[in-house]
Design a protein around this nucleic acid. Structure first.
Lengths: 198, 198
DNA sequence: TAAAATCCATACGCAACCGTATGGAGCCTC
DNA sequence: GAGGCTCCATACGGTTGCGTATGGATTTTA
């Protein structure tokens, strides 16, 4: 009976897995030890053996999150060579409507004490920086690229917020692809206009 | 001694004012009756006289929020005739970095029971709709306008999230104006390219 | 197998909130 | 000026979560 469901001993990693899932739903503040223990069918006694306190768990979870949702995503995307394709691929990943995704809720829930903010600031800067690099590779001037990267990234965050709070207004599954094309096109547009309007 | 600070009788509106301020900081879940009472130097007894329960307060606060931050903003912006100027003005209002602003935190905190979601969905649809109208007035086809309006609005939400969680990565005060120009330009860009890249 | 190290369950105290119950102040009216 | 209405303070019970204490179970080591 060494089945997974049985009363096995738990590792620190088991707790981290659970914390990631919890963070996907409720953000950082969704990481609560008593509900976590209940979900894992164990007790707080286990938790406080593996972790000093809740802050310890939060910090460790954020480390893993950074590694998984930033380092690894960037690695994957960089396996494509063409900058425009990289962006397209990145946008596709970013707009996958998956409420199980731990990523955006981190940036979206708004309490955030200092330790959390530090990680968030670092991750955000890296992400926007990566997008800006691709835009520069496409011939956009550095400062303009930075602005457009910020536009792209904030849009990603807001999109994720709407997935949770008002999914009805977002493009339906089939239309997401078209939406991404619009974002991409607009991001790399050469602004040759200033045309008259209606 | 009818001074404001004295032990006056409170009205329902006084509670709503306080709730709006609380919502500005912690979103819907930041509306908590005991802390509110303490901040107003009164007791829960007062609250439960004016309101049935917390949900009652939340609903009323969201009504006021909708009226103030959607109806009135649209009114103000519509006093400008030129669609492009309307957008510019709207973007300027949207990107005022004011943590006291109750608006975005509503959409950003992710718990949201059904009643809240209803209001949120309605407000979001109206706002995106308004932006789309301006883009259509600028000659952009309806469906494309809807996509770009979504891009604009999600970007606004994400921007507001970063103001709270990672302000360091955002353009500094002086550069915000330039950022807004980029957003505006890109939003109304005629996509005449597909040019070769680096 | 006995001792030691790991790992976990239960019980406890503490704090923040929600909602209710109850006993008033203060004002209004007749 | 007595009774009634409006508004509020305090006290209480219930819930959820954090962190500690303590003993017991299980595995490892000697």
């Amino acid at each position: 009976m060494t089945t997974a469901g049985s009363a096995r001993r738990l590792s620190r990693d088991d707790w981290l897995d659970a914390a990631m899932t919890a963070m996907a739903h409720g953000g950082v503040r969704g990481i609560r030890v008593e509900p976590l223990a209940k979900a894992m069918r164990t007790s707080k006694g286990s938790f406080y053996w593996h972790f000093r306190d809740r802050a310890d768990l939060v910090r460790a979870t954020l480390e893993r999150w950074e590694q998984l949702e930033t380092d690894r995503v960037i690695e994957v995307v960089e396996s494509t060579t063409h900058p425009r394709e990289r962006l397209r691929r990145l946008l596709a990943i970013a707009h996958r409507q998956d409420p199980e995704r731990p990523d955006p809720s981190v940036a979206l829930t708004g309490d955030h004490d200092d330790p959390v903010r530090v990680v968030l600031e670092r991750v955000t800067a890296r992400r926007i920086g990566f997008v800006a690099e691709q835009l520069m590779a496409l011939g956009i001037a550095p400062e303009e690229a930075a602005r457009r990267a910020t536009l792209a990234y904030t849009s990603y965050l807001g999109y994720a917020a709407l997935v949770r709070s008002a999914p009805g207004v977002l493009p339906a599954d089939q239309a997401v692809r078209r939406y991404i094309e619009t974002v991409l096109t607009v991001l790399v547009s050469t602004t040759t206009e200033h045309r008259r309007d209606g």
